[in-house]
Design a protein around this nucleic acid. Structure first.
Length: 874
RNA sequence: GCGGACGUGGCGAAACUGGUAGACGCAAGGGACUUAAAAUCCCUCGGGCUUGCCCAUGCGGGUUCGAUCCCCGCCGUCCGCACCA
């Protein structure tokens, strides 16, 4: 007996059990069908899943289930980005060990994800905090070290005073730590670095091949890598003016063409020459000290006036020995870009102009814009950085900017200064090496040993992994590994004398830079990957995640894959062939009279005549409905996936996540929308019941023309073609619309079949019912199984191959074309599919509406766009 | 400041990138069924009037037989980078 209502609460766990019992989603590496690797960014085990996860994993699941039905050997794994600060914060706050906290969270979130009914191969699950995972990461660190891809150097680092750790540049947002939000300070520390800059050019060039990545992400990476072509120029210094008799100064410029517009030289405050000069000049030393202080907080930098201090040093213009330029120390020059020194051309660089305007040094324009008069062209407050012809520049006059750059480079390259060329062409990158040292406990230990006599010694591979000690304390800030009584004390593997372990752990972005490769053979102990296996699975065919990882995670992963290539752990350079960045889940915000945020579950909405009023569920007090914002704990506008799944079922949540907005855009979570999705679930259930009934009715209609059965088949096959096209382009909202459309059409046809019996309708409905369920299956898999069963179809919906489109059903014998007169639609005309131009023209001109619109004028031209439109020009 | 994206009904959005603007959903209104409600089903739903015609895709121009789509100039919203020489 088929129940009237579909009960998701019973059906969902039942089908999840069935899939598990049949081991349906286990992927075998030996399977030789074409592979398809779909991956969603793995979650950090923060405690509970949120709606953003639901959206992300639903999209991936649709792709996985669709590709499976299409006959691919699909890899769709799940794991945990399990190292990181929150576990230590929890340890400090709640006195629970990070390991315990993390694994408990994983257990909770795993069961939450399982309740979503995802087609995931859980046998490949991994957690980055597991020694079996980080052992392999340590192995690769040593391989990278031996391959020269790791560096240890002192560097000015971003120090997070709250987390007491170093942050990468990318982890500093608006001068604050990306996790703690604390103002970041600058400190000098010896750190471990991955030499990502070795691949700067390659990482940049390869972006052009990533044609299945969003243009936006590629652009962000391009900007981040920040390639610039320029010239390192050696200026001669007047030794009489320098602190230690220095004779030259290297600067970096991308505008050698503007050399005759030079007014000054400028050094970074921490440039060696600045320091040397400061040693003999207390006022300069004070100025440099001041720069350091304003240099920490980024807000200050933004507002800071351009400031400089004349060192008294004089430089000589490379093209004119009699031309002296003052050398300043300036607060706007960065030591770690270029050479930490520049020449200033105020007329064509805004920063230089702001600076000279504050000290009254003046400027000389040397590039004249095309529409300006060289005789009168002047610069006051706005520097000109566009194209033009050179002026006031001696032998460069009249040249274009490009030609002048080339001419200057050519001349200076061939000159020598102190036995070296006066200038060299130099490509510079904004990208810096990736500092991976973190002074934290809950991370992958860096497997090296510091020995007084042998220096830095890698931990021998046979003693890996270097595991984290369990007995640690979190009652004081700083690194628990460093203050552990015994852990760091170890004998040197080379000389056997007492030595010290590295107590820094790796940035957690290292963990997530290769998990996609590990999934291909996750339990392997002898090496990180099996080359044959990893080379078959990678690159990931479709990677799905948030735009917030556009730079950090994706760039690191691209570097890491290359480093794995160099060390023989993988054969490819790019980890992700297709990338999709999904939008956020947003929700209305609510506040009570006191201004406190109120959670959606505590709000009851009443609407009358289109206006909505909100009340507190318990107190009944009026609630103010606020703006729609990203779901966040601070604004309490979150909806718990567990609650939604408990009251509506996973399929409803999945359907709504896919239906409302294009996947790359934000989706607004609304109660009405969820209810609409829930209504549709029941409607599907009723419709499939009606189709099953209609399928078994073998109507013997006399004199039927078969139009109903043809219409049924056309609707079903058209829907398959449309859904197929849109799933492959990840346009899930359109898939949903096609399925609604098919449901509407089938419902109409059921009524029509009743009114005019058609002997073929039974089998057509049977076919349409099956197709309808198959189209639903990737999106609402549990409902699909229940429907599949009620249609008495063999096996499981999740195992059924994707329906084959009968292309002959997609073409119409007669087509209806819109008819325009002078570009305005006036009528429709129905003609045979293969009607020729003359026949269409005749049919169109005979239309009454066309004649009326022509007002007696003869047609001047008739444009017929085949299969599209007819336009009569009168 | 530099770079990029986006502006379509009351709302989320479609429109095969030059070919019927508003598919599909939500909300709203009307009706049927019901003692009543829920559920379900049917109808209406961009605006205006003279009911077959105007006006409508942020605003103003342009190209075209034809523009939401291409070009130019504004206005607005969002995002990324930010003293990178």
């Amino acid at each position: 007996m088929r129940p009237e209502r579909y009960n998701a609460k019973e059906a969902e766990p039942k089908w999840q059990r069935t899939w598990t019992e049949r081991d349906l989603f286990r992927t075998r590496n030996e399977d030789d069908r074409p592979k398809y690797y779909v991956l969603e960014m793995f979650p950090y085990p923060s405690g509970r899943i949120h709606m953003g996860h639901v959206r992300n994993y639903t999209m991936g699941d649709v792709v996985a289930r669709y590709r499976r039905a299409k006959g691919f050997n699909v890899l769709h794994p799940m794991g945990w980005d399990a190292f990181g600060m929150p576990a230590e914060n929890a340890a400090m706050k709640n006195k629970v060990h990070p390991k315990e906290w993390t694994y408990a969270n994983i257990a909770t979130m795993r069961s939450q994800l399982k309740s979503m009914g995802l087609a995931i191969d859980w046998s490949r699950e991994l957690a980055t905090c597991d020694p079996s995972y980080y052992a392999q990461q340590q192995r690769m660190f040593i391989d990278f070290l031996e391959a020269g891809l790791v560096d240890r150097k002192t560097a000015k680092v971003n120090w997070d005073p709250v987390d007491q750790t170093v942050l990468a540049n990318e982890q500093v947002i608006d001068g604050r730590g990306w996790r703690s939000g604390a103002l970041v300070e600058q400190r000098e520390l010896t750190q471990w670095f991955f030499k990502i800059t070795d691949f700067a050019q390659e990482l940049l060039d390869a972006l052009d091949q990533l044609d299945r990545w969003p243009e936006k992400v590629r652009l962000m990476q391009r900007n981040w890598i920040g390639r610039s072509e320029g010239l390192v120029v050696r200026f001669a210094l007047d030794p009489a003016t320098t602190p230690g008799g220095e004779t030259d100064l290297e600067i970096y410029t991308t505008r050698p063409d503007t050399l005759f517009g030079a007014r000054f030289m400028a050094l970074a405050p921490d440039h060696p020459l600045s320091k040397a000069a400061a040693a003999q000049n207390p006022a300069l030393a004070a100025f440099i000290e001041e720069c350091k202080h304003t240099g920490t907080a980024l807000e200050a930098i933004e507002k800071a006036e351009k400031n400089g201090f004349d060192t008294g040093i004089r430089a000589v213009h490379p093209f004119d020995p009699s031309w002296e330029l003052p050398v300043y120390v300036a607060n706007f020059i960065l030591m770690d870009y270029g050479t930490g020194a520049i020449f200033g051309c105020p007329a064509h660089d805004q920063r230089d102009l702001d600076f000279v305007n504050s000290i009254g040094l003046g400027n000389t324009p040397v590039v004249c814009p095309p529409d300006a008069d060289p005789a009168t062209f002047t610069i006051t407050d706005t520097a000109y950085d566009g194209e033009g012809r050179m002026i006031n520049s001696r032998f460069l006059d009249g040249m274009t900017v490009e030609a002048a750059k080339e001419e200057v480079a050519r001349r200076l390259e061939s000159e020598t200064r102190g036995g070296r060329p006066a200038a060299e062409r130099k490509v510079n990158f904004r990208l810096r090496d990736w500092g991976i040292s973190r002074q934290r406990y809950w991370g992958c230990p860096i497997p090296v040993i510091h020995c007084e006599s042998c220096g830095i010694v890698p931990v021998p591979r046979e003693s890996l992994p270097v595991t984290l000690p369990d007995d640690v304390t979190f009652d004081v800030p700083g690194n628990p590994l460093d203050r552990h009584p015994t852990w760091k004390h170890v004998d040197c593997p080379q000389c056997g004398r007492p030595a010290r372990r590295e107590t820094d752990t790796m940035d957690t972005f290292v963990d997530s830079s290769w998990y996609f490769a590990r999934f291909t053979d996750p339990h392997r102990t002898e090496s990180p990957t099996d080359r044959a296996v990893v080379d078959r699975w990678l690159p990931v065919d479709q990677y799905i995640g948030g735009i917030e990882h556009a730079i950090l995670h994706l760039l690191y992963s691209r570097f890491f894959t290359r480093a794995m290539r160099v060390t023989g752990h993988a054969g490819m350079s790019e980890p992700f062939a297709g990338l999709f960045t999904q939008g956020m889940v947003v929700h209305e915000t609510y506040r009570d009279a006191k201004g406190s945020w109120v959670m959606p579950v505590d709000v009851r909405i009443e609407s009358e005549g289109g206006t909505r009023h909100a009340f507190h569920v318990e107190t009944g007090e009026p609630i103010e409905i606020g703006s729609i914002e990203k779901m966040s704990k601070s604004k309490l506008n979150t909806v718990d996936p567990d609650d939604i799944i408990a009251s509506y079922g996973a399929d409803t949540a999945r359907w709504f996540m896919l239906s409302d907005s294009p996947p790359e855009r934000d989706v607004i979570w609304t109660e009405e929308g969820v209810q609409g999705a829930a209504r549709f679930v029941q409607r599907v259930w009723r419709l499939v019941g009606d189709l099953a009934e209609a399928a078994s009715l073998n109507a013997s209609g006399e004199g039927s023309d078969g139009s109903v059965s043809l219409a049924i088949r056309k609707a079903a096959h058209r829907a398959v073609a449309a859904v197929e096209d849109d799933v492959e382009r990840l346009r899930f909202n359109r898939c949903v619309a096609h399925i609604y459309e098919l449901a509407n059409t089938l419902q109409d046809l059921l009524a029509r079949a009743k009114a005019s019996p058609d002997p073929g309708a039974g089998s057509a409905f049977r076919e349409a019912g099956q197709i309808f369920v198959q189209l639903l299956a990737p999106m609402m898999p549990h409902l699909a199984e229940e429907c599949w069963q009620s249609l008495h179809l063999p096996g499981l919906a999740a195992e059924a191959p994707w329906p084959l489109v009968d292309r002959s059903l997609l073409v119409e014998e007669a087509i209806t074309l819109p008819v325009q007169v002078n570009g305005k639609k006036r009528a429709d005309v129905t003609v045979a599919r293969d009607a020729d131009q003359a026949a269409i023209e005749a049919a169109v001109l005979s239309l009454e509406a066309v004649q009326r619109a022509m007002e007696g004028r003869p047609p001047r031209k008739i444009i017929v766009v085949p299969q599209r439109i007819v336009n009569v020009v009168a």
